[in-house]
Nucleic acid binder design. Structure first.
Lengths: 210, 210, 210, 210
DNA sequence: GATGAATGAGCATTCATTCAT
DNA sequence: AATGAATGAATGCTCATTCAT
């Protein structure tokens, strides 16, 4: 009887399956990951996987929902409650995002969404709305706060938000694309992003009013 | 009368086939594009396609080689012959790259390479060496020129080169991923990149020496 | 009502599939037999065939293993337990092998192995070791027994074993190659082999010791 | 002008093409040999090959005709003119055939005919008539001569002819199937056949009439 | 709830053969 | 006579999905 604890797992099963799926998607990409492999890694059978998710695409979508949205909300909460200077808020935001980039499994999700967008336009649309637009909106609101407080010079906040985010995208693509090829391709994320912020803050600084 | 000159097209056929492949890869991605479709769009048969390219992967590779390398070389030539101020050189570089971004078909190639890197690591390695590293090296050399001439403050040039490039990557991903979903998602590339350069140049400007 | 009991046939399926494969290989040869045909003849789908055998070659190999080895063992057991005179043992051996030749489906396997040896060298190697060498060794041991007991004159037993076997090979090739072309090409196997044994035994007989 | 002697080869071209085909069939078997390869090895183009042979099967047939029949005729001539004892004639016949077996390229033809018989029944039929039946007939006539002259005891000559030939078939299959796998699998053809003849002649010897 | 045997649509690739030049 | 570009039928294999147990 090596097979104890069979029931009662109903609650945890979906999470276990998603975790297995995330691992495999990270390792081999979406197309190369077989439903059977996902089930096997989660210690379940193919049938069970289909019990919780009606299709491979559904697994992918659930993964995106479950992994990205909580982080989104956490970040929004931090920003909402912030009291200090806007440059400091921007630095805090950058560091929170940088910490997310450290999570080797999490980081593959945006890459996957981008890579598979042509195959799953609905998912891409959802991701744009729920992650991209919402994230850019959050950054833009920070920038507006800075402009309103005279800390930044006037600029289109949405536009700058995209520029603020671009180096994160670069890191996502680099780490998911090139780093797996060879360890020596690794980049120092922190330095990359701190330099980014440094240049950005100087570039955004309000004109000296002599 | 599209059906004249059937034989002796050995010279033009590969280019026609690559063009068709690029169109389809752009539309549907690599995996979803069938060899038969490529051939058909080029007005040829499957067998003819295999006459010129031994595999689907080979088509992809030939596409990357033929489309990216010439532009790389053109850019290097411009930079090598430049005489004016470094900020102007950076602006010229940005505009050349921006114009490449306008090419709706060309732009899908980097996206594809990134998306398929896991499936074609050799191609990814080649692309990193021949496009990414080479391109970043070129930008870094421009930045070094500016620092040497006292136009920019001292910074790690490779690091800054990556920051210079990040918004281009963002545009590539945006235009290939989100714009096809809905026309209204389009971004004004020029404004995006000009703002980027504006902030970057300010952020990099040499300290006032009073 | 051939369509009952669709599931839970895991135990019997491989044998059914191999039987179908043997039929088709016998009829059309290895190359000309399609996996789909094998599956269809076994009342299964292509996918099911691949569920049990990872490739066409694997089907072939399983067939060779499953059909030849048991007979090999049976024959060895008979020889090992034999008590009578060696000429009688040789005659018994010949009759057992002759009976195997009667099996119209079994007989195609050696023919196939020979015909496909260039395409499947590993299989050929295995077959040489597991069937040819082992069989020749068995015959050689019988011949040695006869020589040791003074029933046969001294001769290289391995060499003679090959001569003992040659007419069986001839029957295999004849029946698989020429008989299918025309019924009238049939040969009386029994007479062929009994004559063979008759001549061989006389040719091997110990010199009269006057 | 590296391309001299273009014309005038009309006579030799077919022979060159057949030689190339024989080489390749010997190396890789019939199915695995591509028409393009045959043409290339003969220094010609695919089109030229089709100029002389209407199909791959036709190449095969021409090969069988051109390579086997002359040897057949040569052997018949030797037998027809023979004057000595029948055992000696049998030994001479055996040696002529043994020498043919030494020809590594020639030897693959019977193997190919057997292997491909299912795919080319017409060729198999032709081969049976023109080579097998004719050859067995020749041997049978020698055996009849020996029985008529009281050198051999009475036996069905056709039946014994097949037994005489069986070890040659074994050598053909062995050398074409197992020897290419590993040099160490080589057999001493001469000893094999001489032992065969020795046993056969004893086995056939007329009864001592005391 | 859970299983895993069964399905079959889908696609890359090969190569004998044709025929305009 | 000779070429070689073009064709397209044919087939092994994969894997998401279904469903009887």
């Amino acid at each position: 009887m090596p097979d104890r604890l069979p029931r009662r797992r109903k609650e945890t099963r979906p999470a276990e399956l998603l975790e297995a799926a995330l691992d495999l998607f990270a390792e081999k990409g979406f197309a190369a990951t077989r439903m059977e492999d996902i089930a096997a890694r989660a210690g379940a059978s193919k049938g069970t996987l289909y019990l919780y998710f009606p299709s491979k695409q559904a697994v992918f979508e659930a993964l995106v929902h479950s992994a990205l949205l909580p982080n989104m909300e956490r970040l929004e909460a931090v920003v909402a409650g912030y009291e200090g200077s806007t440059p400091e808020l921007l630095r805090t935001t950058l560091r929170i995002l940088a910490r997310l980039l450290e999570n080797r499994r999490l980081i593959v999700l945006p890459k996957l969404v981008l890579a598979e967008a042509a195959n799953f336009p609905d998912l891409a649309r959802f991701h744009k709305r729920a992650v991209v637009d919402r994230g850019l909106g959050l950054i833009a609101s920070i920038l507006e706060r800075g402009m309103a407080r005279g800390e930044f010079r006037r600029q289109n906040p949405v536009l700058v938000a995209r520029l603020f985010v671009a180096p994160f995208l670069m890191m996502v693509m680099w780490r998911t694309t090139f780093e797996p090829l060879d360890e020596s391709f690794a980049i120092d994320t922190t330095r990359h992003l701190e330099t980014h912020l440094d240049i950005l803050l100087r570039g955004l600084a309000a004109e000296e009013t002599p």
